[in-house]
Design a protein around this nucleic acid. Structure first.
Lengths: 338, 338
DNA sequence: TTGAAAGATGTAAGCGCTTGCAATTTTGCT
DNA sequence: AGCAAAATTGCAAGCGCTTACATCTTTCAA
């Protein structure tokens, strides 16, 4: 039969040190409220007993957990990694902990994870993008959970956000592409249903396309989940469908990497036969061949600012603000004048 | 002044439904112990009040959280992504939730996160590799926290583990490399200090090298953190140092991708001028050019088995077992007979 | 019809911690 | 030395939930 070990509690420490639990608690949380002598004695006992505080009890009594939760669509590729890392680092500096869940791009799962993290007492939440059901936002509002939305930003938003304008950014890139003489563009986009970032990026291309006097009908678009393999497959489909684009604009770098790979397999020279562009400027972007023209997103900055905003929201209950970060187009060899 | 909203509690539900808190709790956790009529009534009240259980309180009262924690060295690249995803999926199926932290390859941080997760009431832990301080293992044993170590395995281990033999796997690859006629190998390894996987992979190459009658002195080795950029830099160093390897064996695919990229920049043809190998077989491996010869690791299977083992450990308190998974060498174009 | 077994519900004691308030000790002045 | 103020400590009431045990209902065989 399994016998669980007895784990030392605050009481044990208090008894062993000959003080009250209140004092021990103060030693742990507000050292300045305790005399140096008792502090030393208590800490010693804590040490010798190997005491570690029970988080659940603490969160419950104090009504705050010093934990913040983040839900990201996927951990499978590097898109969110860097930003999240910076987010976590900033949080740790400020004495907060991060709990991460992945929703696998499923709104239902995301909603569930949100409830879970809130139920767990998260002091605040980091969510990606703004597109989610009213019910979720209502829940968040009702529970009064400080939340910041990252990787996207609507300045008109009633939500705090840290991000950039996906649409404008992609339009910037598309303008350059078209200005370089490309008249046959094909788009390989992420799945836009439930993914505002993907939708806006696509819209950015369409904006530019229209503004240059073209018809949307002449803009072939394939939607596919953000995976390298899917980029490859999509390119193949394009070719088989006898579309002859001079440039493939991809919804992100991962898709673009797949396209470049498949293009070579099929005997296309990038960029001579076909140009390729991405979005995000992940590490990989400059290491594929040819290096990828893409939109550079300041991931680390975004993570840091998101953390700072969120903590500000939690601790000072300030007004919700939106931070709009600057992105830039990185011109590299995968895009060529025609 | 900020006024926190009143969040409905079990008591509120009990009052509103005209039953005791015990009954409400049963409706939520052991439906079969409650009459259908009360069940319906209670659930209705739960719904209308928008009640959600407080996790901390529940974990505290029930002494279990149905949460398991995972600490991975990094989220920055895809190494752990796939396995972790499978791990999470399996967990969800079985009614457990996953909390992830990243230790950034820092043992101190990992130790801290372990304590945090345990303090938070995690029912079990997933850790990567086996190399960590005695103190940590003692702590885990004292607290009696079910733990499984993944991505590595020592069959002689006193710990439950799910993984593969990094050393043997890399040796397998090295044997093939040498059998293909390569006599000038250079190694670009991950940082082996504190990373048993990296250390074993390196040892695997050395085993093979020695077994083929070569001297370790003639095996140039560069250690560098697992980042694509670092692979590129390391290759450049090698060349500048006038080392003329016929093959570069890398500690993982990410480093290898960097090497391939930089090699091309410097005018080397891979594999004609120099061959390159990786390890892990991440998605990217077959999409770089030339496609990467590497060791295929069954990440998803590993994640799934790890989850199953851990739950078994938690629920049934079974004996610790080690699962050794099979890996295979994927021969692709980046490695050429000499 | 009756009584024992089974089923449904309620009571209340915690789980381990924080914190407002009260009690006690120390400090700093006159 | 004497006293108010400041510093330190203790008391005890929760935080929101689960669960052993007690109590009350229902069911059903005899």
């Amino acid at each position: 039969m399994h016998v669980p070990p007895r784990i030392p509690t605050l009481d044990d420490v208090a008894n062993a040190a000959g003080v009250s639990t209140a004092t021990v608690s103060r030693c742990l949380n507000e050292k300045q409220k305790v005399s140096p002598k008792t502090l030393a004695k208590v800490m010693e006992t804590v040490e010798s007993l190997g005491y570690t505080p029970n988080f659940n009890a603490r969160a419950m009594a104090a009504k705050q957990s010093h934990t913040i939760g983040a839900i990201i669509p996927t951990m499978e590729n590097a898109i969110f990694a860097r930003g999240l890392q910076a987010f976590q680092e900033t949080l740790l500096e400020k004495g907060y902990n991060l709990l991460v869940s992945s929703s696998a791009y499923q709104p239902k799962l995301e909603a569930q994870q949100i409830r879970e993290l809130v139920a767990r007492g998260a002091d605040g939440l980091l969510l990606i993008g703004y597109e989610r059901s009213e019910a979720v936002y209502e829940y968040l509002a009702r529970r009064d959970v400080p939340t910041v939305l990252a990787w996207a930003s609507k300045s008109d938003s009633e939500h705090a956000s840290v991000g950039f304008d996906n649409r404008a950014a992609m339009r910037l890139l598309a303008d350059k592409v078209i200005d370089m003489g490309h008249k046959q563009i094909a788009v390989i986009s992420g799945i836009i249903d439930g993914n505002d970032r993907a939708a806006e990026r696509l819209a950015g291309i369409q904006d530019s396309w229209r503004a240059h006097g073209f018809h949307l009908n002449d803009l072939p678009i394939i939607q596919t989940p953000y995976e390298i393999e899917n980029g490859a497959t999509a390119f193949e489909q394009l070719i088989q469908a006898d579309v002859k684009p001079t440039v493939i604009m991809c919804g992100n770098d991962v898709l673009a990497a797949g396209v470049i790979s498949k293009a070579r397999d099929l005997g296309f020279n990038v960029p001579n036969d076909v140009s390729v562009t991405g979005f995000d400027d992940i590490e990989l972007a400059k290491h594929v061949f040819p290096p990828l023209t893409t939109v550079h997103v300041p991931h680390r900055q975004m993570g840091r600012v998101a953390a700072e905003s969120l903590i500000d929201l939690i601790e000072n209950r300030v007004e919700k603000v939106s931070h709009q970060l600057d992105v830039s187009v990185e011109m590299r060899a995968s895009l060529q004048r025609i």
